[in-house]
Simulated scan of single mutants.
Amino acid sequence: MAYRFSTNDQFNYEVLLALGSAWQRGADVGEVLTAASATADADAQTWCTTWSTLARAVRQQGERSLAGGRTISARDAFLRAATYFGTALVSVDACADPEELLRELFAETLDPPAERVTIPYEGASLPGYLLSPPGRSGQLPTVIANNGSDGPISAAWTLLGAPAVARGYRALLFDGPGQQSMLFDHKVPFRPDWERVITPVVDFLLARSDVDPARLVLAGISQAGYWVPRALAFEHRIAAGVADPGVVEVGESWWPRLGPDLRALWESGDRETFDHVVNGALGADPAAASVWRWRTKPYGVDSPYDVMVEIAKYDLMPVVHQITTPLLITDPDGEQFWPGASERLYEALPGPKELVRFTESEGAQLHCEPMGRAVFEQRVFDWLDTRLAP
């Protein structure tokens, strides 16, 4: 079954993600389809304008509801607005006010409200939210929701946090290096050695009296399919992990789009010619240039050659033998960014592992199962509940 809402592959996928988030109240189907119709053949500017305009309108409705004491309506509106602002971020370089797209209001209107937290990190801090199930107290299992390369924190909520809290877990949402506020506000780029991020997160959680130290989960979406197992190779205080999907080498999602000739040129070490060819191609294709800027910004380097050098560092194979934490890996039909990587990671893991298929016949295909969220939650959290049973 093919879903097609835009001639632009990335835009089309973002529409699928937005529709899927409706399962956890992160979008309204009618709002998404209306915006998708207006952006079917859109350029970056039209995409950003359409989705950010929708987001502002929904946020304003939430503010009116909140002013009138209607907190449930406000909560739902703020969460939808966060989703739509995040969708607009795909074309961040075409947005007039990209900082506006980073504001999150939904967490404060949850019941109970999310607790803003500050996680000590290398002399500075990582911002986040800790969310708890209503009516539950004491030490609870906790899911660390590790976002991907470009999603807003509201996406970590709808994809991982909300289903965790609904099942009695606490959920920690945070921005790591290169993600959202850490990138745009603090100019901190990605890093391949993600254990340097997760170990401070674990230290922070274990210092709390309301977190069960024996039932910590590290779950990641999209590019966090690399970061989660990378962290687990070094951080062994986590009881179980989830990689959605499995990623062995982050660069495997880049080279098919660049082609074998450019790869050969890069491998030759001819930096000047590589940069000249790539920059020339981007100059002739504004749409491709917009995607390139968006994808490369979190790596913190400008030269195309140096970007690929940096991405080559994101390789699990040198440390995969150190992973002993039980790890669930999703394997959806039609995985478009890292095809085959989930199975490759599964085969390489030495410890307890499970490869969970998501198929087109059940509507749960494609990267991060955008239209199969109920199926995802059932399989993944049933597995976690079994693993973490007291």
Rank of each mutant, 00 (worst) to 15 (best):
E362L: 14
Q45A: 15
I72R: 15
M1W: 12
R237V: 02
E272K: 11
F174A: 09
I119W: 15
P152C: 08
Y305S: 07
D210P: 04
G351D: 01
E195V: 05
P213N: 05
T83A: 08
A156G: 13
S37D: 13
A364Y: 01
T39Y: 05
R215W: 02
G138E: 02
A166E: 10
R230P: 01
D150P: 10
D9W: 13
T39V: 06
A36Y: 05
K187W: 15
I329L: 06
A77M: 08
V380P: 01
F337T: 05
L388Q: 00
R295N: 15
D275C: 07
A27G: 00
E122Y: 13
L232M: 06
P213E: 01
P177F: 06
A224Q: 03
T296Y: 13
D302Q: 12
T7C: 13
P141F: 00
M371Y: 07
F174R: 07
E335Q: 03
E377K: 06
A36W: 02
Y3P: 14
L130V: 07
D315R: 09
L366D: 11
A162L: 06
N279H: 11
H186C: 12
V356G: 00
W227S: 09
G259Y: 12
A240V: 00
E335C: 01
W294P: 12
D185F: 12
N279P: 13
V197Q: 07
T34E: 15
A341G: 03
